[in-house]
Design a binder for these strands. Structure first.
Lengths: 225, 225
DNA sequence: GCATTCATTAATGCATACGCAAATAAATGC
DNA sequence: GCATTTATTTGCGTATGCATTAATGAATGC
């Protein structure tokens, strides 16, 4: 984010966040190969911290270490997106259910309500980027309320990969005017402690989103992003 | 497994599988700290491959790298087990649903049926270890049939941690005579392509297992394993 | 002209070395 | 005797160098 914050980070950590950034920014495009030494030079450090960062990113499914071919930035295919959405559907539904069981009061659900409100505004002003940001905020907050660190961690990993695809798909997708009805229904169910409805409603919401996305990807022949 | 196979592995890979084994065998107990250099010496290699393996294991949630304190083997608490079971419940249910949608024939479900049969036999002969092995085989096969690499990968990670707890809990838990009825119901639903039933039934099965386990852990004050 | 073998190149996997910062012990002041 | 400062130790983060081994190109045989 800023240089001062970076000063306190180790080189491994800087490498990690820089490589992530480069991947998401498309500077390291999906499907391309890069030598460790090349990346090391580019980030102004030795191969050691680069390797450590690459190891981590490999575990997170963003790239692959292929001996003598360099690190390969993994492309995200339509099939990958299906897998990712299935994981997200399963885990977020679980989070919605758990959130409903937690008995949160209105104050605790403030961020969730805020995100829904922001999406309304974004749709009115037809600001797709603002909508995507608020939508993501809603889902992240929902998962947080689910009160399960592991679900949270996996969500973040998968979400990273979705973000890569979203850049592309956001602008070819229909304005999601309907989806906020789902969000509200999930919110209400959580507020009322109705875990069954929360889970089921969110599940349908995500499943629907998946079908739209996969449909778009296939229609536009976007097989790797 | 054997020396010959190990010869062809890199030191990093050997370190990875050795450290895993030591953790699961209890040689590196939960909550204990170990210096990188100590582990390096113990495995007869330098710190570099040890660090790489430790990085991976940290990502997988088995240990934690704490500067100057060594790698800390993470204990698995009752709260952790709750989290893990929630993830497994969500993902396996998704896998059951997807498996039902795949339209597998009897042959494709052979391993699943085999595992169920083995559990029957194990219960008859009261062989808890054999039962646990077959049970695990059933769940792993179910996930495989779910046809989602990411679900598979996460399942394996979570399952690793469950295995650590199972060593302890297996012998204080009641003989699971009833659970095979669930397994059969899930099998039938998949065989008949009834995705809704497969998902719901498996979800209930897992949820039940979770409640039993958590109950046991709390009753026996097993807060960290 | 094509396949096969050999030589060359180059990138990795790993060992090693070292500076730095944190933790611990020692010493000093009060 | 306690607190605070200073010295010492120790483990980690990272750079560097080298042996290994795969990939590439050259050369030889057919």
């Amino acid at each position: 984010m800023n240089d001062i914050a970076n000063k306190s980070l180790s080189n491994s950590q800087r490498a990690l966040q820089e490589l992530r950034r480069m991947i998401f920014a498309g500077e390291l495009a999906g499907g391309t190969d890069h030598l460790e030494s090349e990346l090391a030079e580019r980030l102004g450090m030795s191969r050691t911290p680069i390797r450590e960062a690459a190891l981590t990113l490999e575990n997170q499914g963003l790239l692959e270490l292929r001996p003598r071919k360099g690190v390969r930035i993994l492309p995200v295919s339509a099939a990958d997106m299906r897998e990712i959405y299935e994981v997200l559907t399963a885990l977020e539904s679980q989070a919605a259910e758990q959130a409903a069981l937690m008995g949160y009061d209105e104050e605790a659900l403030r961020h969730l309500a805020q995100a829904i409100g922001d999406m309304d505004l974004a749709i009115e002003s037809e600001d797709l980027e603002a909508w995507a940001e608020a939508d993501n905020r809603f889902h992240a907050e929902l998962v947080r309320l689910g009160n399960n660190n592991r679900v949270n961690a996996i969500f973040n990993m998968m979400n990273d990969q979705v973000r890569r695809a979203r850049m592309t798909t956001l602008f070819i997708r229909p304005v999601p005017t309907k989806s906020n009805a789902d969000h509200r229904a999930v919110y209400d169910a959580i507020r009322q402690g109705d875990d069954d409805t929360a889970r089921r409603r969110h599940r349908e919401h995500r499943q629907h989103a998946k079908e739209i996305l996969i449909g778009l990807l296939e229609k536009h022949r976007l097989n790797h992003l």
